[in-house]
Design a protein around this nucleic acid. Structure first.
Length: 518
RNA sequence: GGUUCUGUAGCUCAGCUGGUAGAGCAGUACACUUUUAAUGUACGGGUCCUGGGUUCGAAUCCCAGCGGAGCCA
């Protein structure tokens, strides 16, 4: 048997009682809403006598029965507004059932109702709806967590009682989280605004938003382990994309000058407050440009995002006030490592690098190549210290198999990352368009793979074929939408900017059936 | 993977050196026609995460497992 709590059983009973009264708890008819709570709060003025015929719908969040009249709060998507429900107004005739039985007994917190009436201010000045008609729109069978708030008269601060805070429940039941924690909705609205600000920026520049395959016969475009799946009809292995880079470059080969995609990517790796197995990137490729040009674009675009969300370039993130105003600090990777460790590694071979890593207490394993060691040193000693947005440029060629060799410095590539609040937020290069060089880089990756690097890239013949037809010089960018959202919404964990973060399966209470003896 | 914390009513939590569970909110009943954490009175509500062990006796102590969070790799 499914175990129902006392309150759940009671709500099911009320459902039956409503039906017995001829009230459909889940009616089909639409309920025409003409205003939101927010619109009324913003624009109601008693002297104007406006909002005299309003219809609103939402959840019943509190009820205060005062006898023959009651106060309640209705919450719609814009916020809450108080209702004043008077027995003799909603029941003008002899029959007081709607008030005495339906409203007072059979409605529960969390139920969806629709109300019609006029707006007024109560004696204490609370803008309220004087309800003339009340309609049940959907009955809630489970009680919501009850969160109460009060404005502290001394400080003017909002005090919250019994906040719904358990992270597990918040993430597993995000629907509940959003109902009772309105600030959660704000975070996700900001995330959408962020995406829209970027999209507007890119569209204004004339770039084309495109869609490329999520199911790919070969995964590529990043160093990561993929999710593997199988297509039945074609009887073939497919991978969920870890990046869309190689497909977008094919589109540049095909003749588009600027393409971008907001893409869900999938990486079969560890989880942390910065990593979810599926996450969102925006990748952009623009023909005839280089990485220096792309740095300017990133600065401008992210600055605009900050302005769109906050109206200013400064954003408070934890204890740090981060300023996205252009221009950002720029270091080459070797400069940055030297600045933060005092060690110049530019000329070192692998043995010397291993020695340096040891001195700097950076953990290594034997499968790591030269570039991986540099990456570890950087990740350990530099990245966490870069709080204000900073560009790191000119990476070793081995760690960037899709980037063009540096025009001036052998052994390096024309690549940059932007680091902010101690974490990478984007990765970009002058794209490698020399098909012979690209083939060699892929082969070097295969070698790394043989050495045990599970994140090494695989060789993509079709992509090489496309390059052989010719790809114009191109600047490419991947920018992490989740990471950027965390920064822009002051969220400590990636789980706070994903509606439904990945969780271990929940052990759901279910009927205990004896497995048949077999 | 290592380590620390954590799991008790619908929600937020208390529960001491072991004696079969408490509070506030929510719920139920009654009262109350401008309240707002409404109020007053009364009442009901529990697989103490799961499984073992120690014990006369376990929410509590021990072991294992499961879920979650933090830190580390």
């Amino acid at each position: 048997m499914i175990h129902l709590s006392e309150q759940e059983l009671l709500r099911r009973q009320k459902l039956d009682e409503l039906k017995a009264l001829g009230i459909e708890p889940y009616p089909s008819e639409l309920f025409d809403v003409n205003f939101s709570a927010q619109e009324i709060h913003d624009n109601y003025h008693p002297e104007l006598n406006n909002f005299q015929e309003v219809a609103l719908a939402g959840r019943l969040m509190t009820v205060r029965v005062m006898g023959k009249a009651s106060f309640a709060e209705l919450m719609d998507s814009s916020g809450r507004i108080q209702l004043y429900v008077n027995r003799d107004e909603i029941c003008p005739g002899e029959d007081k059932t709607l008030y005495n039985t339906v409203f007072k007994k059979l409605l529960d917190l969390g139920d969806f109702i629709g109300v019609k009436g006029h707006v007024f201010k109560t004696q204490v000045g609370e803008t309220s709806i004087h309800v003339k008609e009340l309609t049940l729109l959907a009955k809630a069978l489970r009680p919501l967590p009850v969160v109460k708030e009060r404005i502290d008269e001394a400080t003017g601060e909002k005090v919250v009682y019994d906040a719904f805070t358990d992270p597990e429940q918040r993430y597993r039941q995000r629907y509940v989280d959003m109902v009772v924690n309105p600030q959660v909705r704000d975070t996700f609205i900001k995330r959408t605004q962020l995406v829209q600000a970027m999209r507007n920026y890119l569209n204004d520049k004339g770039y084309l938003e495109v869609e490329t395959p999520i199911l790919q016969p070969l995964y590529g475009g990043a160093a990561a382990r993929p999710f593997k799946t199988h297509h039945n009809t074609l009887d073939m292995t497919l991978y969920l994309r870890i990046a869309n880079e190689l497909y977008l470059k094919r589109l540049i080969v095909g003749g588009f000058d600027g393409v971008y995609e907001f893409s869900k990517d999938f990486r079969n790796e560890g989880m942390s407050r910065f990593h979810n197995p599926e996450f969102t990137q925006m990748e952009l490729y623009v023909a005839y440009k280089d990485y220096a040009w792309m740095m300017d674009l990133v600065e401008e675009m992210v600055e605009r995002v900050a302005l769109a969300l906050h109206g200013k370039t400064e954003v408070q993130v934890g204890d740090n006030l981060i300023n996205f105003q252009r221009p950002w600090q720029r270091y080459t990777m070797f400069e940055a490592i030297e600045k933060f460790t005092g060690v110049a590694i530019g000329e070192m071979d692998e043995a010397a690098l291993r020695e340096t890593a040891k001195t700097l207490k950076v953990g290594l394993d034997p499968s790591m190549g030269k570039s991986k060691i540099i990456d570890e040193i950087f990740g350990e000693h530099v990245e966490p210290k870069l709080i204000q947005p900073t560009f790191i440029t000119d990476y070793p060629v081995e760690m960037s198999p899709l980037a063009k060799k540096h025009r001036d410095h052998p052994g390096l590539v024309e690549r940059f990352e932007a680091i902010c609040n101690g974490k990478e937020i984007c990765n970009a290069f002058s794209e490698l368009n020399d098909p012979i060089d690209q083939r060699q880089r892929f082969e070097d990756q295969l070698e790394l793979g043989k050495r045990g690097d599970t994140e090494a890239m695989v060789l993509d013949e079709d992509f090489l074929r496309a390059l052989e037809y010719g790809m114009p010089p191109t600047a490419g960018l991947g920018i992490g939408i989740d990471r950027l959202s965390m920064i822009m919404t002051n969220s400590h964990s990636i789980q706070d900017v994903l509606f439904f973060p990945q969780m271990r399966p929940e052990v759901v209470a279910q009927e205990k059936t004896q497995p048949s003896a077999s």
